[in-house]
Computed example of a mutant assay.
Amino acid sequence: AFFHNGTWSSFRGRSHGRPVDVSRTPAHRFVGYAQTHDQIGNRALGDRLASSLSPGLQACAAALVLTGPFTPMLFMGEEWGARTPWQFFTDHTDPELAEAVRNGRRREFGAHGWAEEEIPDPQDPATRDRSCLDWSEPGREPHGRLLAWYRELIALRRTLPDLHDPDLASVKTAFDEDARWFAYRRGDLRVVVNLADKPAAIPLGLGRHRRSGGRVLAAWEPVEAPGPDGVLHLPPESCVVLADD
């Protein structure tokens, strides 16, 4: 574990399977994201994270991306949890190539258990039309709340120096895989996510300067800063950004 007896361990990075020298490589050289057009478009039906994750888990993903040490990247509509798909579509003018792409995708996903007739036709204009954003979503819930959360996190990243510090070696991490929580510290800030479907009691210890458990800067659900025992009680599928006092 990275967190043991009140200590946090240093971030360890790998690039293409090779260790990264975190003492020499600035964080902004890496891109951090939760989903991309390649990942979504190359799925059978082009479904986004929002199609299978709760708003709370999407908020956790946002917190990890936007407060993490890497250069953040968002996919269009991710900031409000868009539920429109991003399906693979093409406009090949060569009939043989168009047919080869169409049949190739159907065979590929059919081999993985999908019914071939369910795979959208890349050449059908309706496939492209389904992939357009629904711009009415941000005005409805839960999309509006998620968009406000993204804006809050982006504002923190712009105003807090610790959130654009390029020093990877200074990032400290902690987690409990069984309890499904993860935390990291960047300077005087700590970010904690609870991915479990039940509340978590997370032993973070006191702030860096040992005066208190810190204060809440942003939280997806109402939460109090850790008490004198340094334990954070975080609601299910939720996240928080804490500042050491």
Results as ranks from 00 to 15, higher is better:
residue 2 F to A: 12
residue 3 F to T: 07
residue 4 H to A: 10
residue 5 N to R: 15
residue 6 G to L: 08
residue 8 W to E: 04
residue 9 S to A: 12
residue 10 S to H: 12
residue 10 S to V: 08
residue 10 S to G: 09
residue 11 F to E: 05
residue 13 G to A: 15
residue 15 S to M: 12
residue 18 R to P: 01
residue 20 V to D: 14
residue 21 D to W: 07
residue 21 D to K: 10
residue 21 D to S: 13
residue 23 S to A: 14
residue 26 P to D: 13
residue 26 P to S: 12
residue 26 P to G: 11
residue 32 G to R: 03
residue 34 A to R: 02
residue 35 Q to E: 15
residue 35 Q to C: 05
residue 36 T to D: 14
residue 38 D to R: 07
residue 41 G to H: 00
residue 42 N to S: 11
residue 45 L to W: 07
residue 45 L to H: 15
residue 46 G to C: 05
residue 52 S to Q: 13
residue 54 S to K: 11
residue 55 P to S: 13
residue 58 Q to L: 15
residue 59 A to V: 01
residue 61 A to Q: 14
residue 61 A to W: 05
residue 63 A to Q: 12
residue 63 A to F: 07
residue 68 G to W: 06
residue 70 F to E: 04
residue 71 T to H: 03
residue 74 L to A: 15
residue 75 F to W: 02
residue 77 G to N: 05
residue 82 A to P: 06
residue 85 P to R: 02
residue 85 P to D: 03
residue 87 Q to K: 15
residue 87 Q to Y: 04
residue 87 Q to E: 14
residue 87 Q to I: 07
residue 88 F to D: 04
residue 90 T to A: 15
residue 92 H to G: 12
residue 94 D to T: 11
residue 94 D to Q: 10
residue 97 L to T: 13
residue 98 A to N: 00
residue 98 A to C: 05
residue 99 E to M: 12
residue 101 V to F: 03
residue 103 N to G: 03
residue 105 R to Q: 07
residue 106 R to K: 12
residue 106 R to V: 09
residue 107 R to S: 14
residue 107 R to F: 10
residue 109 F to S: 09
residue 109 F to N: 07
residue 110 G to K: 03
residue 111 A to T: 13
residue 113 G to S: 13
residue 116 E to N: 00
residue 121 D to N: 13
residue 126 A to V: 08
residue 126 A to W: 06
residue 127 T to A: 08
residue 132 C to F: 04
residue 134 D to T: 10
residue 135 W to C: 06
residue 136 S to T: 12
residue 136 S to V: 04
residue 136 S to P: 04
residue 137 E to W: 00
residue 138 P to K: 01
residue 140 R to Q: 15
residue 143 H to S: 09
residue 144 G to W: 14
residue 148 A to T: 06
residue 148 A to C: 02
residue 149 W to L: 01
residue 149 W to N: 02
residue 149 W to M: 00
residue 150 Y to C: 02
residue 150 Y to F: 08
residue 152 E to G: 14
residue 154 I to Q: 14
residue 157 R to P: 04
residue 157 R to S: 09
residue 158 R to I: 03
residue 160 L to P: 06
residue 160 L to A: 11
residue 162 D to H: 06
residue 171 V to F: 01
residue 172 K to Y: 00
residue 172 K to G: 00
residue 172 K to Q: 05
residue 173 T to S: 04
residue 174 A to D: 10
residue 177 E to T: 10
residue 180 R to P: 00
residue 180 R to N: 14
residue 187 G to R: 02
residue 187 G to T: 07
residue 188 D to Y: 01
residue 190 R to L: 10
residue 195 L to Y: 03
residue 197 D to W: 13
residue 197 D to S: 12
residue 197 D to Y: 04
residue 198 K to T: 09
residue 200 A to G: 01
residue 204 L to G: 01
residue 207 G to W: 02
residue 208 R to W: 12
residue 209 H to F: 15
residue 213 G to V: 02
residue 214 G to H: 03
residue 215 R to Q: 15
residue 216 V to P: 01
residue 216 V to N: 05
residue 217 L to P: 01
residue 218 A to T: 13
residue 218 A to N: 08
residue 218 A to Y: 15
residue 218 A to E: 09
residue 219 A to W: 02
residue 220 W to R: 12
residue 230 G to Q: 03
residue 232 L to K: 04
residue 232 L to E: 00
residue 235 P to R: 11
residue 238 S to A: 15
residue 240 V to I: 05
residue 240 V to T: 06
residue 245 D to C: 05
residue 245 D to N: 07
